[in-house]
Nucleic acid binder design. Structure first.
Length: 301
DNA sequence: CACTAAACCTGGGAGC
DNA sequence: TGCTCCCAGGTTTAGT
């Protein structure tokens, strides 16, 4: 899936298009997607009806993000929570036939040809100014409706999430303290979202490469200097990736179907067996927490 | 507790 | 052209 830069780029591309729009009609073609996370998802007709009734005739007031979740605040006081998991997409088609190109960080992003709806458009929302499609090839994602902030908070969806790396609150001392309180290898720690959120398999490897730290290193062996390098790498890589619309490795797209260009900046992700772009050493591949992990044995210690 | 593997799914690419 | 196997941006849950 999209990691933080992709979810954030999607959010930024959605805001000018659908904040202020009213949801008129909702169609749920894949009922399990509106139900709670989990491995086997079964959904009652009542649950689907609650989802549809909660969203119809309500206005999208704002769109926020926590970790890799998108949070739509509705004029009714209700909340729509969207998680894209591996292959989710939110694509908007305007009623107007205009070519409206995505502009992220001041730079227009190249458009792709996206047919909407398509065979994986499983939830379709008709807005007053266009249509919003939730597509998801692998069907891992979910869209959850909560009738109020109180109900949403009571469910404790975000309770184990760590620091938001793009926030002002992401300060060095907090990061250092939190990381020192954990054990286990640093890559696994990034993937589990408990210290800092938003890094996934791509950005965990990219950050560790930039910081010069091996992904296999146990947190209790990391020096203060090394942790500082990791902290600084996060602060450089994530904003830059957002500015470039994220990494479109396979099917990640923004609201208008355009693709992000940060994949061109990848130093290690997807480059196992190739030469390190800094020192020329062959990049090594290993598996950590069941995920393919790429690193440079020379640049990372 | 900590860690790993499986589960949820479809599709693209590699190799034969 | 087609088959089989492996792999994929995430996260939860079952099993050791």
């Amino acid at each position: 899936m999209p990691e933080l830069p992709e979810v954030e780029s999607l959010r930024l591309s959605l805001i000018p298009r659908i904040v202020g729009s009213t949801i008129q009609k909702v169609r749920v073609l894949m009922p399990k997607l509106v139900s709670s996370k989990g491995t086997t998802r079964t959904v009652s007709n009542t649950k689907v009806a609650e989802f549809i009734n909660g969203l119809e005739d309500t206005k999208i007031v704002s769109i926020n993000r926590r970790a890799k979740n998108l949070i739509f605040n509705l004029s009714s006081g209700g909340i729509l929570l969207v998680h894209l998991k591996m292959t989710g997409q939110l694509a908007f088609k305007s009623n107007k036939n205009s070519h409206d190109k995505a502009v992220i960080g001041g730079h227009p992003i190249q458009e792709s040809e996206l047919v909407l709806p398509n065979k994986h458009s499983y939830i379709i929302m008709q807005l007053d100014n266009g249509s919003l499609y939730y597509n998801d090839v692998r069907q891992f994602g979910y869209l959850l409706y909560f009738k109020s902030l109180e109900v949403f908070e009571a469910e404790g969806h975000f309770e184990n999430l760590g620091l938001e790396p793009l926030d002002q609150e992401f300060i060095w001392q907090d990061f250092y303290t939190k990381i020192k309180a954990k054990t286990g290898n640093i890559k696994k720690l990034f993937l589990d979202q408990t210290v800092v959120v938003g890094l996934g398999n791509i950005y965990a490897d990219e950050v560790l490469f930039r910081a010069g730290v091996l992904p296999t290193r146990n947190t209790n062996s990391l020096t203060k200097v090394e942790i500082k390098k990791i902290y600084e790498a996060i602060l450089v890589i994530l904003p830059k990736a957002v500015n470039m619309g994220g990494s479109s490795v396979a099917n990640y797209i923004m609201a208008d179907g355009s693709r992000g260009t940060y994949a061109h900046e990848h130093m290690v992700y997807g480059r196992g067996g190739k030469e390190c772009l800094v020192c020329g050493t062959i990049l090594q591949k290993t598996v950590i927490a069941s995920r393919t992990t790429i690193f440079c044995p020379e640049c990372q210690k």
